[in-house]
């Protein structure tokens, strides 16, 4: 049992982390309140100095809070410097968790998460 616990701690410590604290993500959802169907997600990314982060490739993955639901995916396009827009199909009412899988222009990869609460039927 002790060996198992040690193994768990070791594996946990070795897990690959994709978080990047030096970037700031801001998101906006429309319509408000969000409803089942297509929603537009706008993301603004800035670096530590406040400058917009351009030419990143962002893929969005939406998951429901309940297990057993297939995730939905969406791609984004850059509409202004550091601003990215996407259209995502929310298939069910409730709370959604959106993961932004970002590949920056310098090749760095990182993930960012945010929630869309209370999507209405």
């Amino acid at each position: 049992m002790v060996a198992l616990c040690a193994c768990l701690v070791f594996v946990q410590a070795c897990r690959h982390q994709n978080k990047s604290p030096d970037l700031t993500f801001a998101h906006d959802i429309s319509p408000q309140p969000p409803r089942v169907g297509k929603v537009t997600i706008t993301l603004n990314i800035k670096d530590a100095s406040g400058a917009p982060v351009s030419r990143a490739r962002l893929n969005l993955e939406g998951n429901m809070s309940h297990a057993g639901m297939a995730p939905v995916f969406a791609e984004t396009r850059e509409t202004a410097a550091g601003q990215y827009q996407s259209s995502m199909e929310l298939s069910m009412a409730g709370d959604w968790n959106v993961t932004v899988h970002a590949t920056l222009s310098d090749g760095r990869k990182l993930d960012h998460e945010f929630e869309i609460r209370g999507v209405e039927p």
Binding site: L8, R15, N63, H66, A67, M69, N97, T99
Partner: peptide
């Protein structure tokens, strides 16, 4: 469940138990 991602649809604990 203890050490994996804490997002229910991505975790074996929640997926196998509740689905």
């Amino acid at each position: 469940g203890l050490f994996g991602p804490q997002l229910a649809p991505r975790n074996l604990a929640t997926t196998v138990t509740w689905v």
